[in-house]
Design a protein around this nucleic acid. Structure first.
Length: 303
DNA sequence: TCTTCAGCTGCCGTCGTGTA
DNA sequence: TACACGACGGCAGCTGAAGA
């Protein structure tokens, strides 16, 4: 098997996880409608924890698949990129970057900031796993949607979406190979122009001097040097929302979002639950949750 | 030698505001 | 009213320097 075949096989196994409950933790059923409304407001705080648990369990799940036997093993690396790599004789080493998405949160908050330069051999794919508690606000984490997308494609779309010199610059990590591992940079960053109108005109002139096609993003050393000259000469601010998967307008991610929001879950679509929990008042949220899940007032829980 | 702390990088989340 | 964007907060992991 080669890298692409391993990734194709992993993608196939990952798709089979749809509807699967991970037996990693279980949220207790709230004891009252009020508690249910309160829980609904803070349940997204669990997302980072569950996301990590899902990452561990996905690695275990893949290693249980006999089709990989004899070729290597999936290994989790945290910290490190990607989250999960296929350790064996296959070169380049296949990898999966796993991004958990809790679709009741305000947006897909996972970022994807890795440089296009990391995907020269198309050896790393991004696996997005949407999860919800099996009874919306309690129960075990349940996978409600999966998308596996080549990482290089996401990085390219991201850079083309954001990079609009001189207004917005995407910068590759600097050469930090001489530093210790904790101080090495691997991520791209986005910078937004903060200068005056007159400075903007000057910056535009600089970009025009780069010649035809000078605004098209390139991760090369030469082009990055031009961008750093702009950054040194004019005021820019670091964009801390850069590369949020929700915002990069990748067609496959947008399709995945639409599918998850349209999916039926506990009597409504996921999108309807999202809107209800985000916009509804406490009284209506608690009443709806109580009716849907048989939660009685005064702590009397119907089981 | 061990412990503590600062510095840096990376990750994930909500909320407020402006706009179509 | 929905959506996009910007601002901001919190936390973890790692390394190296400084001090006990």
């Amino acid at each position: 098997m080669n890298t692409q075949q391993i990734l194709a096989l992993a993608t196939q196994h990952m798709q089979a996880l749809n509807g699967h409950c991970f037996d990693v933790l279980e949220l207790a059923k709230p004891a009252s409608p009020e508690a249910a409304a309160n829980l609904a407001k803070i349940i997204s705080k669990l997302s980072p924890l569950v996301g990590n648990l899902i990452e561990f369990n996905t690695c275990e799940y893949l290693n249980k698949q006999s089709s990989f036997a004899g070729f290597g093993k999936w290994r989790r690396q945290d910290p490190g990129f990607p989250d999960t790599v296929f350790d064996g004789q296959i070169s380049p080493m296949p990898g999966l970057e796993i991004k958990a998405w809790f679709p009741l949160a305000t947006e897909i908050t996972a970022r994807f900031k890795d440089s296009q330069n990391h995907f020269a051999h198309d050896q790393t794919h991004v696996a997005m796993l949407a999860w919800l508690p099996e009874f919306l606000i309690f129960g075990k984490p349940k996978i409600v949607g999966i998308a596996v997308i080549p990482g290089g494609s996401i990085a390219k779309v991201r850079d083309e979406h954001y990079h609009k010199a001189p207004d917005y610059l995407v910068l590759e990590p600097e050469d930090t190979s001489a530093r210790t591992s904790n101080l090495q940079q691997t991520n791209t960053n986005g910078y937004k122009f903060q200068g005056t109108a007159a400075q903007y005109v000057q910056a535009q002139q600089m970009v025009q001097n780069w010649g035809a096609g000078g605004t098209a993003y390139l991760p090369t050393r030469e082009y990055q040097a031009l961008l750093r000259a702009l950054l040194a000469q004019f005021p820019y601010r670091l964009d801390t929302n850069f590369a949020k998967l929700d915002r990069i307008a990748h067609p496959s991610i947008e399709r995945f979002k639409a599918e998850v929001y349209a999916a039926e879950f506990q009597g409504r679509t996921v999108g309807e639950w999202n809107r209800l929990l985000a916009k509804g008042d406490d009284a209506s949220i608690s009443a709806i949750l109580a009716a849907q899940f048989g939660i009685q007032p005064n702590g009397n829980v119907v089981r």
